[in-house]
Design a protein around this nucleic acid. Sequence first.
RNA 1: GCGUUCGUAGCUCAGCUGGAUAGAGCGACGGACUUCGAAUCCGUAGGUCGCAGGUUCGACUCCUGUCGGACGCACCA
Length: 587
Amino acid sequence: MVETKAAWKRIIARALEGYAAEKGVAAPMPAADAIVLERPPTSELGDFGFPMFPYAKLLRSAPALVAQAVARIVERDPAAARLGGAAAEGPYLNVRLARPAVVAEVLARAGSPAWGRGSALRGKKVMVEFSSPNTNKPLHLGHLRNNVLGESLSRIMSAAGAEVRKIDHFNDRGVHICKSMLAYQAYGEGRTPADEGLKGDHFVGKYYVLFNKLMEEDPKAEEKAQELLVRWEAGDAEVRALWQRMKDWVIGGIKETYARTLVSFDLYDYESDTYQLGVDSVLSGLEKGVFYRNEDGSVWADFEDINLDKKVFLRKDGTSLYITQDIGTAIARHEDWPYDRLIYVVANEQAYHFKILFETLRRLGYAWAADLHHLAYGMVNLPSGRMKTREGTVVDADDLIDELASIAAKEIEAKGREDAVGDSRAVSDRIALGALHYYLLQTGPMKDMLYDPEQSLSFTGDTGPYIQYMGARASSIIRKHLAGEGNAVKGDPDPGLLASDADWELVKQIAALPEAVDSSASAMEPSIMAAYLHDLATAFSAWYRDNPVLNNPDADLAASRIELVKAVKASFEAACALVCVPFLEAM
RNA sequence: GCGUUCGUAGCUCAGCUGGAUAGAGCGACGGACUUCGAAUCCGUAGGUCGCAGGUUCGACUCCUGUCGGACGCACCA
């Protein structure tokens, strides 16, 4: 379809030049790739159209007249005749494609294993950092948005041809980590997650919350946490051992959640290993005049020229800060694996931090600073207000998925689908993930979003389960056909038979997949894939309502439609994978 | 004060590089299961796209201003 569109642009460009020659207009006509192509409001008008407004002035002629002239010239173009036909419609030139050829091509492509791949990022190396949790508590709803954005974006970019490396950066040091350690020392009595029957991350998270109790009982608790941090930094063996043990518990638990939610990484790194990186870069930047030293010894940079404030890069005692570490890791990562782009999936409240970070790297002379990108995403709000750990309104990731899965299980039971579904528990889990991920990716990342538990638990409407249901219906038809049911087994498929408007609409929707992948990857917007899936699902549901497949009296037509359903299924599978919505054969 | 960002139907959100009547879902109302699975489908009602200017043949889309909301501007991460 991409090639077809490009071919039509060339045809239109040629026709415009032809018309210019006829009229004796000397002004240069636009090049083929500058021709604007758009989709008509209704498909009756054509498969795509070209507005003639931009060329009217150049040609000193009314848009409608240009359209008529171009239509006349295109009619004599043999390349155009092969691809379909064009007609003037007011100021627009609308194209109708030659259907049989396109149908045959789309069905063939959708049948190949490479279906669903784009080309926008071919040859690019993209690094994506996401999730990056603290190692003192389990993941919450906000992480789920982060994770699905990062994972989905990685998959989409990979599908668009990029080589993608996914990185998780554990924030495993700092005073907040020491707080959970201190509370564990006070109340833990040496127990392990297994003793309490808890996942490791929930276990440690419990003690992090208990630190509040400790503060009430011990007014020096905050101070003690600081002292613990000092001992940690000094490498105190006892402190390090406890730290390592609790950290392993948390990371073990978090990795379970990753596995359950289809998230994976190519590389894990740890703040405890990297937090001193960047000090040397700052010191050498100091010599180059990128930074300056204050009287007290601290190192600063001034960003007033870009309307930002001054910023500290090294404390007066020479130790590093968050920003210092990020400078170091960005440089180290680029040395290790020279990327064309590094995307940080981090909440939008960090936007200021990343502006400073990128600007600093630019000033340090790294040309690749221009390839760094902060994919900011908004807050997940609850109807009752912003979620905060301290207020206890936080939605735990594991609990949420459990709850969704149990609703799905009840739904399966209520519909009497246990036998048809097979492993009811596994399917419930996959429906839960479909519901959650689709919900989170539907909205563009920048917006704060409202998470309405009731709505996300409802499986009707424009939801993940709706997408999964349509995929399951397509699967069901194919399954029955393979089992020997219906008229199609006796017929021979012929793409030429798929000539109705309904068939055509569905074929076009299938064909749009690679373009959706490319634009989703280029815009770094997984929501484009979610929208594609919704369009595919509604197109398919409208189609199969009116077009019997298995019990079609015409055997050849039935066989041809089976091919179309296969292409639909392949498109669902490919697109669902990109938005982390599990594809289901039955539900 | 400065910076980022959002403001589209009662609610939650789409709207691709500006282009032909602004779209979904939920909710409301009315229909469709002896028909390949009704977690579905069809129809009706509902919007001066926050407001005011500007650019353009054409603006929900770009620019300026303004109002309203969110977030940020630590020797915390």
